[in-house]
């Protein structure tokens, strides 16, 4: 019984939140890694792209809520998601046309593209704050819980409750569907294969008649979809604040690099590695240890390895360790 209680506490405070967070990071990291693979630069504007897509979705959600349209137990934001993806895709294609294409034609060094993406980051950041303001916005509606702590307790008769929020369940289900679709697209379709060919060897791909403009455009559209979905899921799970999305840049990049930049599988693995370690290290283990350790050995303090404010430090330390011992990441990404 004691052990079961410990397990429930662990699942409630570590396993489930970290899985949801990991799925969100993985989707974000997939976007970063795709841009790196196809366009060959680290996109600093990715966090703000996520914020932009989420903002459009939030606005759409409010509109739908005003009209009284909803999805019942599911958040209305899911209905507004296609709108968010479409507008973000249009924005990204627009920035590519106006900004990035010029430099791509000149074949500048990747680091110049990174600086250019810094400029885009400023603009998107300003744009999002301009339209929706810098404050917290909550836009989750529908049923809050799949199972509440009290229901779980009466169901199982345990002392500890296990709560699963709708947004957490939704995050994992959506992430699985999106990732499955993405891998099917990359591995099974002609366009997806041409994208992988372009990523592996640009010259050979061009030689075999692949249209680079089309590959780039499709990449931006997929990235828009991934960024918007990741942003909306994160916003539903926590809340939407432009600055938080900018700060997500670090764990997302850590995830992409840990997995190996350019490797989609690595991005997913990296997302979960970063999320699990962040939550595990910043969680106070007092309760779990109290249940598992024998009588008299219970810890006096919180047994929290690091305060939650240091969660950036965790993603960073993992990043450094992986880079020192396996410079191309866990899944052998590319290194331009």
């Amino acid at each position: 019984m004691e052990l079961l209680n410990a397990l429930v506490v662990f699942a409630n405070f570590v396993l489930i939140p970290a899985t949801a967070y990991g799925a969100q990071l993985a989707l974000g990291a997939l976007g970063v890694t795709l841009i790196y693979g196809i366009l060959r630069f680290s996109n600093f504007a990715h966090g703000d792209t996520m914020a932009f897509g989420t903002m459009v979705t939030v606005l759409g959600t409010w509109g739908l809520q005003n009209l009284g349209i909803g999805l019942g137990p599911l958040p209305t934001a899911l209905l507004a998601l296609p709108l968010g993806i479409a507008v973000t895709a249009a924005l990204l294609l627009g920035t590519d046309r106006v900004v990035y294409r010029f430099y791509r034609k000149q074949r500048v060094k990747p680091v110049i593209l990174v600086i250019v993406s810094m400029g885009v980051m400023f603009i998107l950041n300003g744009l999002v704050r301009f339209i929706i303001g810098p404050d917290d916005q909550r836009f989750a509606d529908g049923e809050r819980f799949i199972i509440t702590a009290r229901e779980f307790k009466t169901m199982t008769g345990l002392d500890e409750g296990l709560a699963i929020r709708t947004t957490q369940g939704l995050t994992v289900v959506t992430a699985v569907i999106v990732v499955a679709l993405l891998f099917w697209f990359l591995n099974r379709t002609r366009t997806g294969k041409s994208m992988r060919a372009f990523s592996d060897n640009e010259d050979l791909a061009l030689l075999s008649g692949i249209n680079p403009d089309r590959v780039v455009a499709i990449t931006w559209i997929i990235v828009a979809a991934l960024a918007t979905i990741a942003g909306v899921l994160y916003g539903l799970d926590k809340s939407f604040k432009p600055f938080t999305y900018f700060q997500l840049l670090l764990p997302i990049f850590a995830a992409a690099i840990v997995g190996g930049l350019g490797s989609p599988l690595g991005a997913i693995a990296g997302g979960f590695v970063v999320a699990y370690s962040e939550v595990t290290i910043t969680y106070a283990w007092k309760k779990v240890l109290g249940y598992t350790l024998p009588e008299g050995l219970e810890p006096g303090g919180l047994v929290q390895l690091l305060s939650t404010d240091y969660k950036f430090a965790v993603s960073f330390v993992i990043l450094v360790i992986v880079l020192l011992f396996r410079p191309t990441g866990l899944f052998r990404g590319k290194s331009v």
């Binding site: 700060q247 840049l249 880079l323």
Partner: peptide, 20 residues
């Protein structure tokens, strides 16, 4: 620790250090 890395990695590493 980080200077041997490629430019993008150095960027992310310094970004992380600043946040820490």
């Amino acid at each position: 620790t980080a200077l041997g890395l490629r430019s993008d990695y150095l960027a992310i590493a310094t970004l992380g250090i600043a946040e820490i």
